[in-house]
């Protein structure tokens, strides 16, 4: 049974690449929300950074026709996640709301899940996370600090979903469309990142994913991600046969 058939919520994200400006507001918002350790210069140089969401930048062409293309990548919360069945201790599992969840106190650090993930969005804690004492004041009490030797990744800000659902439940109502927001989607100034419930056909994300520009990353692996991308538009690209030129 897939999440789409299971319950009221199937949380997912639609990333409109055409609106992404690569500003990294999402990256720093995620860092602050989820108590991600500081990526020191040493860790950057050793390619041991932890960044639950990253904005990849690719060059196309040469001067003066050079173009920089940005694409935000985070855990795709796959319905058919390669990381889930390989975990010997069930530290990563799929919950009833479409989230690929990491149980930190089960994780024994085999890193099989990271090996299996084609999106490279799982991060291993090679060191104990350390903050200067005073900076610990800004740590988010809703999010567990992960210790050395375990794996972590984007949780779709599950703590924010829980807080929103608790509020809605206490007020005797359903969660409204757009009410639950991840830190990254909340920060994104251009609304390139959109979070919502795919099980609600009237939600913004459900409508967005019907756009003809929709695709999923590494579709060939059949992972069935809950993150849908809308392709970047190049207004000067000549469209080949079989397509009607109209404003998308």
């Amino acid at each position: 049974m897939t999440t789409a058939e299971f319950g009221a919520h199937n949380w997912g994200m639609v990333v409109d690449v055409d609106k992404c400006i690569g500003c990294n507001a999402c990256v720093i918002a995620c860092q602050a929300e989820n108590n991600i350790p500081i990526n020191t210069q040493d860790r950057v140089e050793r390619a041991r950074t932890i960044s639950w969401i990253r904005v990849e930048r690719y060059w196309e062409g040469d001067f003066p026709d050079a173009k920089a293309r940005f694409i935000p990548i985070m855990c795709q919360h796959c319905e058919n996640a390669p990381c889930e069945p390989v975990c010997p201790v069930y530290a990563t599992y799929h919950n009833a709301e479409g989230l690929n969840v990491q149980v930190y106190n089960r994780c024994v650090g085999t890193r099989y899940c990271a090996n299996g993930c084609p999106y490279i969005v799982r991060f291993f804690n090679y060191w104990e996370p350390v903050w200067p004492e005073s900076l610990r004041n800004h740590l988010n009490p809703d999010v567990t600090i992960r210790s050395r030797g375990i794996m972590e990744k984007c949780s779709f800000c599950v703590q924010r979903i829980r807080r929103t659902s608790r509020t809605a439940r206490s007020e005797g109502r359903e969660i409204a469309d757009g009410e639950a927001q991840t830190a990254c989607s909340s920060a994104c100034p251009t609304s390139a990142l959109n979070f919502g419930n795919f099980n609600d056909p009237n939600s913004k994300v459900s409508k967005m994913k019907e756009d003809k520009r929709h695709y999923t990353l590494l579709d060939q692996f059949g992972t069935d991600p809950n993150v849908i991308y809308l392709a970047k538009i190049d207004a000067d690209k000549k469209v080949g046969a079989g397509e009607h030129a109209s404003h998308g």
Binding site: V17, E56, I71, Y215, A231, D234, K237, A245, H247
Partner: peptide, 11 residues
């Protein structure tokens, strides 16, 4: 690396 479409083109 990044899928690019023209105006009105589908992914």
């Amino acid at each position: 690396p990044v899928l690019v479409v023209g105006i009105g083109e589908s992914a």
